[in-house]
Computed example of a mutant assay.
Amino acid sequence: MPRTLRLNKGLQPAQKRTFTFVTLVKKMSDYQASWQRAELLLATAKTLLLPEVAAANETDLRQFDEFLDANELGLAFECLESITYEDQPTCLPLLRLLRSTAEEMNLRENLAELDNRINALEKPLTQ
């Protein structure tokens, strides 16, 4: 927390504690908003699964829902990405939502892989 300490310079001890607490609450609020956006993106992406894909992956999707309920967004992401990769690899809207989720969650490796998959699917469209 070096930044907070610099900002606290010149404050009384009680003021420093209050300032630090407010700073942490604001950061926590930012994280919660990001988690909510990621959760919404994941839930929306799930709705784009084809009915036959959803039926074939019923157990995995139940696990996905449990991960969302437990706020295990990374595990939920991996679960849905795996289903998409194996059973519905060419659905651009679904891949774009997963990409947005990876970006929101700062999952750089997944983001790069999804960018590659999306670009490979879009190339035939532009030629």
Rank of each mutant, 00 (worst) to 15 (best):
T20C: 07
R108E: 13
A120S: 12
T44H: 06
Q88E: 10
M1A: 15
L114I: 12
R62D: 15
E78R: 04
T126M: 11
N106F: 14
S34C: 10
T59V: 15
N110F: 00
L73G: 07
K16I: 13
Y31D: 05
C91I: 00
P2W: 10
E86Y: 15
K26Y: 12
N110W: 00
A102H: 02
L40G: 02
Y85T: 10
T47C: 11
A43N: 09
L75H: 00
L73D: 11
D69V: 05
E122R: 15
T59H: 12
L7P: 02
Q127H: 12
E86H: 14
K46P: 01
A56Q: 05
F67A: 07
K123Y: 10
N8Q: 11
N71I: 00
D30A: 15
L68T: 01
S29K: 13
L61H: 03
C91H: 13
R108L: 10
N57R: 08
W35P: 01
G74Y: 12
C91M: 03
R17F: 08
E109Q: 02
R117N: 10
G10F: 09
V25S: 11
T84H: 10
D30H: 13
F77P: 01
R3N: 09
L125G: 12
E52I: 01
L24E: 12
G74L: 08
R6V: 08
Q63N: 13
T18L: 14
P51L: 07
P2Q: 15
